[in-house]
Computed example of a mutant assay.
Amino acid sequence: MPLIRKRRAPTADDEASEDSQDDTPTTATQRQRRRPSPASDAGDFVDGDEETQGDASLEQMVKKMVRFALACEYARQPIRRADISAKVLGTHGRQFKAVFQEAQLQLRATFGMEMTELPLKEKVTLQQRRAAQKTEKAATSSNAWVLTSTLPAKFRTPAILPPPRIPTTATESAYVALYTFIISVIYLAGGQLPEEKLERYLKRTNADQTTPVDKTEKLLNRLIKEGYIVRNKDTSGGEEIVEYMVGPRGKVEVGEQGVAGLVRTVYGEGATEELEKRIERSLGLGERNRAAAAKASSTANSTPAEGRGRGRPRRGDDDDG
């Protein structure tokens, strides 16, 4: 009689293991699909961090810009764009405009000052003019600034804006008085003053050898270094001619209005209308005012038709013809 082998009935454990084996690939695939990509998460975090870091970097650069401007003004050195790029911006040179504008706002709001651009140096000697002609493109901007006060004129008094205390208030007051006097003499002489005449004026004030600040020669060299005056030497005629002119800082810090104010202060109550005419004539203010008025008048009287080009005639003109 043949043996009959009975198959063992599947148990619950076997069924569970088979089900788990069948479901394992599907579950793993679904988990892989549902799991968020680590790269996308990192990208989101990086974008947010870069934006935050960019704002913080801009804020830090603005603070450095303000400190740098104050330090330059303390040392009476111009705020040059090249120095700003090297010491403030670093590798963020393209953010110069944004940093500069924000620093201007903070300087005005906190310190009552702003950065004013220095004018270009004048080319007066023959050598300077020839050098300027050799350059392919003439410079239109000095890319240098100094700090000037934004306070109204009534608040610009020694009681509110006293001279610096370093080294001493008396020394700084004497220095301001000396360079204001020298700049005024140059302005009143027509903008250029020969060396012999400057020495004559200094001798009249007993400052031809020494001054309360330093020796006269060292004082003049310091004024030249800080941009208050400019010394020009011209040897084109065979003889060396030395003349002094007002430098970029002198034009901004003192200027023609400062010279006029000094003259009025010296005359005191004796200032008359005749004095005002003499001041305008010496500084050339009258001619410039008349030229500006004539230009404004010609601009106002000019009609739009004068600026039209030669184009097609209007329809009304064709109809009349």
Score class of each variant (00 low, 15 high):
Arg108Asn: 09
Gln53Trp: 04
Ala9Gln: 15
Phe68Gly: 03
Arg312Tyr: 02
Gly316Phe: 06
Ile229Arg: 07
Asp19Ala: 15
Lys197Ser: 13
Thr205Val: 09
Ala109Ser: 13
Arg290Phe: 10
Gln60Phe: 06
Ala132Phe: 05
Ala174Thr: 01
Lys63Met: 14
Asp208Ser: 15
Pro78Trp: 03
Arg310Ile: 08
Tyr179Asn: 11
Arg8Trp: 03
Ala207Leu: 13
Glu15Met: 14
Asn206Val: 08
Ser298Pro: 00
Pro2Ala: 15
Arg249Thr: 09
Glu18Asp: 13
Asn289Cys: 08
Phe68Ser: 04
Lys215Arg: 13
Arg76Gln: 11
Asn221Lys: 10
Ala170Pro: 01
Arg288Met: 09
Leu58Gly: 00
Tyr179Phe: 15
Pro158Phe: 05
Ile160Met: 13
Ala189Phe: 02
Gln60Cys: 05
Ser37Thr: 03
Ser282Cys: 08
Ile182Phe: 04
Asp55Leu: 15
Leu285Gly: 03
Leu178Arg: 08
Glu256His: 04
Pro164Ala: 14
Glu102Gln: 12
Glu280Leu: 06
Leu58Asp: 03
Val146Arg: 06
Phe68Thr: 01
Phe181Tyr: 09
Ala296Ser: 14
Thr11Tyr: 04
Glu280Asn: 15
Ala305Leu: 11
Glu274Thr: 10
Phe100Tyr: 07
Gln127Trp: 10
Asp214Phe: 00
Gln77Trp: 02
Ala177Tyr: 06
Arg204Cys: 03
Glu217Gly: 04
Gly311Ala: 13
Val213Tyr: 00
Gly227Arg: 08
Gly268Arg: 12
Lys63Ala: 10
Pro119Leu: 03
Pro248Leu: 07
Arg33Leu: 14
Ala131Asp: 11
Lys6His: 13
Lys277Asp: 07
Ala177Phe: 08
Glu172Phe: 04
Ile166Lys: 12
Gly270Asn: 14
Ser37Tyr: 10
Thr135Ser: 14
Arg264Tyr: 00
Gln53Pro: 00
Ala9Glu: 14
Leu118Lys: 04
Thr148Asn: 01
Gln104Tyr: 01
Glu195Gly: 00
Arg278Trp: 02
Asn232Cys: 06
Ile84Pro: 03
Arg281Ser: 15
